[in-house]
Every structure is written in C-alpha cells, then in structure tokens.
Amino acid sequence: MATRTIMLRSGDARDIALVDTLMAAAFDPRFGEAWTRSQALGVMAMPGVRLTLALLDDQPAGFALVRSVTDEAELLLLAVDPTYRRRGVATALLRGIVDDGRAGGVADLHLEVRAGNDAVRLYTAHGFAKVGERRGYYRGKTGQVYDAHTYRRAL
C-alpha cells in the first residue's frame, strides 16, 4: 500500500485559478456556497487573510481561507476536491489553521456552514461547537434559501 503525503503550503492571488478549480469541484452549485473569482481575490487582498493549499501526492486537493483580526480568526472557506475526500486533507488543513492560529496568538476560531452540510461532522470532531444560526443565509441557483450555522472553537 502506497503512503500518501499531504503537504500544506501558503498561497496568494497567483493561485486563484487553482482556488477556482477546487471551489467548482468541491461546492455543489445548488447551495450557493462557492465564491466568485472576484470575491475570493477581494478577500485575499485584505489584511490578515491567509490562503493555505493542500497537495496530496503533489496534486492540488484542497484549500482553506482564513481571516485573523487581533485574537480571533474566521475560517472563511474550506474546500476539498471530491476526488480527495476522506483521505485526511480537510483534517490536515484544519490542523494547520489551528497551529497557525495558536502561533499567531488567536484565542478563538469561528466558522459558519450550511445547515445539513456533511462538513459539520468534521468540524465537531475537531472541537467546534455550534454557537448561532443565520436564517436564509445561503441562496442557491434556483432561489432556494438555506440556513447557516455558526461554530466556535477555543484555541
């Protein structure tokens, strides 16, 4: 059995094509969770925003986008190409985010996720607890709305 290596590396706006490709593969358009290229570039240009790319056996497998302000951080996006799911990519990204946050003095890490998203199991398994709800936050392509749940983890 071959050993699979997940490598994390910092990214920036030069990686936008890769981010677009991963987002298109990872997010089902019916839920309205993916960002446009201009939205992603706009956020990546903000102070305190960090893009982390995950490579599995040197192939792009996922990414995370995090914004830190003083002692708090928010996981803005986490995407894993479906081809690479259940191989530890999301866990590696989360661990990297937590490690970076601790090293940078972050006390609390926040995120929001669509109600019913399978990723909730991942987040709760990694110490996140539900702290709130945003009604009708996501709008899918058909106009259907979905609630978002907010989560927090102390670091």
Rank of each mutant, 00 (worst) to 15 (best):
D12E: 12
A13I: 11
R14V: 07
I16Q: 02
A17P: 00
A17L: 07
L18N: 06
L18S: 08
D20R: 07
T21E: 06
T21R: 09
L22C: 13
M23R: 06
M23D: 06
A24K: 13
A24S: 13
A25D: 09
D28H: 15
F31G: 04
F31N: 06
E33M: 15
A34L: 09
A34Y: 03
W35M: 11
W35Y: 12
T36A: 08
S38H: 11
S38V: 15
A40W: 00
A40C: 05
G42Y: 01
V43G: 00
M44E: 04
M44Y: 05
A45I: 10
A45Y: 00
A45P: 04
M46G: 11
M46W: 10
M46P: 01
M46Q: 15
M46H: 14
P47D: 12
P47V: 12
P47E: 12
G48P: 03
R50T: 13
T52Y: 00
A54F: 02
L56E: 00
D57N: 15
D58L: 05
D58G: 05
Q59W: 10
P60V: 08
A61Q: 08
A61R: 06
G62F: 02
F63T: 05
F63V: 07
F63H: 07
A64K: 01
L65P: 01
V66C: 06
V66K: 01
R67D: 02
R67F: 05
S68H: 04
T70Y: 07
D71H: 12
D71Q: 08
E74H: 08
A79C: 12
P82N: 11
P82E: 08
P82L: 11
T83Y: 03
R86H: 12
R86W: 02
V89M: 05
A90Q: 05
A92M: 12
A92C: 14
L93A: 06
L94M: 15
L94W: 05
L94H: 08
L94G: 02
L94A: 06
V98W: 05
V98Y: 03
D99C: 11
D99W: 08
D99K: 13
D100H: 11
D100F: 07
D100Q: 14
G101D: 01
A103S: 13
A103N: 09
A103Y: 02
G105N: 12
V106I: 14
A107I: 10
D108G: 03
L109F: 07
L109E: 00
L109P: 00
L109G: 01
H110I: 08
L111S: 01
E112G: 03
E112C: 09
V113N: 01
A115N: 04
A115D: 07
N117E: 09
D118P: 15
D118N: 13
A119W: 04
A119E: 03
V120S: 01
R121F: 04
R121D: 04
R121V: 09
L122N: 02
T124Q: 09
H126Y: 14
G127R: 03
G127Q: 04
G127S: 09
F128Y: 10
F128E: 01
A129I: 11
A129K: 07
A129C: 07
E133W: 12
R134W: 05
R135S: 14
G136I: 12
Y137H: 13
Y138S: 10
K141E: 14
T142K: 13
Q144A: 14
T150Y: 11
Y151I: 04
R152Y: 06
R153P: 00
